[in-house]
Nucleic acid binder design. Sequence first.
DNA 1: TTGAAAGCGCTAACAT
DNA 2: ATGTTAGCGCTTTCAA
Lengths: 353, 353
Amino acid sequence: MTTLTEVAQRAGVTPATVSNVLRQRGKVGAATRERVLEAVAALDYRPHLTARALAEGSTPTLALMVSSIANPFYPEFALAAERAARRSGRFLIVCNTNEDPVMLRAYLDQIAGTLSEGMLVMNAKVDFEVLRKTQARGTPVVLCLWERPETPPGIPCIAVDFAAAGALAARHLLELGHRRIGAILAGGLDGVQAPRYEGFCATLKLEHVAHPDSEVRFTTDSVQGGYQAAVQLLDEHPDLTAIFATNDLPALGAMHAAADRGLRIPEDISVIGITDIQLARESRPGLSTVAVPTEAAATLAVELLEALIDGKAGGDAPMQIAPAPVLVIRASTGPVRRKKRSRQTVERSRGKR
Amino acid sequence: MTTLTEVAQRAGVTPATVSNVLRQRGKVGAATRERVLEAVAALDYRPHLTARALAEGSTPTLALMVSSIANPFYPEFALAAERAARRSGRFLIVCNTNEDPVMLRAYLDQIAGTLSEGMLVMNAKVDFEVLRKTQARGTPVVLCLWERPETPPGIPCIAVDFAAAGALAARHLLELGHRRIGAILAGGLDGVQAPRYEGFCATLKLEHVAHPDSEVRFTTDSVQGGYQAAVQLLDEHPDLTAIFATNDLPALGAMHAAADRGLRIPEDISVIGITDIQLARESRPGLSTVAVPTEAAATLAVELLEALIDGKAGGDAPMQIAPAPVLVIRASTGPVRRKKRSRQTVERSRGKR
DNA sequence: TTGAAAGCGCTAACAT
DNA sequence: ATGTTAGCGCTTTCAA
């Protein structure tokens, strides 16, 4: 490994001078500058970022904590976050906590403030106390996708109005004439996706459309989970004309379930999700969904974190609201058909498939 | 931020002693040990990994260069790599080069040997010279998925026999009776996926099954690309009874194309891919594919890199071969149906046999 | 068993 | 315009 000192020796100057030309600090004579650059090139020198970090008191990296890279949404977010980080010359360390709070804590303890200057947290269930402690120790923390804009968590964060997303989905289905809509909630009533369901319910209520508890299913945030939930819903409520899922993955599963039951989408049943992940575009039929501002939220999160790092904002920085979710109509939703499906139709199609 | 020195002061000892108890070096009296630990707890001390790295001459991180996190295969690989890295207490920095060789170079230049001890490279098109230079500068590099086991690249690597994967796919289709098989090659004849296609062709040839050039399409490694390629193939060669794609994403696209054309899968047309990404399991019908040993390759890659870092292996380390790909039969492939095809078609396939 | 001291590679006052 | 000096926080001989 070549060091600054070696470059300095070869160029016949001191390390300080080399550092100056490298950092573009100016105040270096053109001649020496030349010699230094020549030496740098000749020795194939690369600055040692760790040493620089120690000397400067900060590392050019940000850490992103995700609960599960397996979920296709995270890579999309991570990609956007990395782009934003690179804009200010920072690297991104992706840490996968596997939904494990212990792992999250371990990461926070180990890399916050040492291997990285700041932490982006996307974890579903996080103990805010742990985040506050990290913050108190001096490393800025930003919660990336806070789902309740109406109640700031007391930690710097980017909020996304997920309730509005749920409402948008509900409104879309209502406008298409649907009145019997099954719902699939990934995670449960106390989970991070609950606000989406609340927004959905509120809109139905507003329009005086009944939505009995028997028409909701709680499941995991996966295609698989959505599939099973939809199977139950479809079997127990053959009069459903639409299904709303709080996330695209389960919505995709619901589409599969409907197809397996011989139901045509959207003629027999409409399906809508939330997020607009890449897959939603690529499914057949294309999944109607409510797009969440992934890119914008990631950019805002990085920018907020950087502001905190640079001291331009404090731990009491106001919550920032990401752009509003927008409805994306594809082929999985359509007007309700007058001629309702009868029990028999269902049985028949089931047998056929 | 609390430093070692502060802890030492509070415990009434020197930094060296604190370091010793923290590193479990033994040789510290039980009493002082107690006091030190107490001070550590009281001050909520966390070692500064950057400082430690500088003092020790190495950072506990590995970098993984991927060409595009957007491709769902990479997160799966990254997840496995991270797990393996954590086993030895290392963190993983994920660097997205966006298929851009300049970005790759920039990352290599900046973080190799400073922010990370070693580099895992998964990029499709890499300039080996750049990798060798990095290696020469002292930072180990491992190529994660070398696709030509028969010709080692001269850089430490994990090889996956992709040609065998292509052969397996071909054999499976042949055994089902298919004789007219369209192929979709993501990337082109000089791309990283070419060996898969070569393996496929070789097997067909071995069985004397014709595979004219007009029945291949080159496209991008995406659902979209596969869709378009399949549309062409299907339109121009209505007698095709199966489609082989060099990767799961385009295979999924091909399934969509077939469905859009009113073809039933696998009754009218069989589709098979390579890799076995999560999506292959979740598609409808489930995609038959040839599973690549993602987890094993990632683990091997990390272990090889760590061996290089620890000096247990040199830059001339032998190429390691990952476990052989295995055929995964799901619902997208089935026996050829004679009656579905035109008379002419049947005769033609018979004639070729 | 504990302490003192040197130094990892770099940066940043402060001198000259 | 360039050099000198003093660290950043930690580890690690080598002494005591």
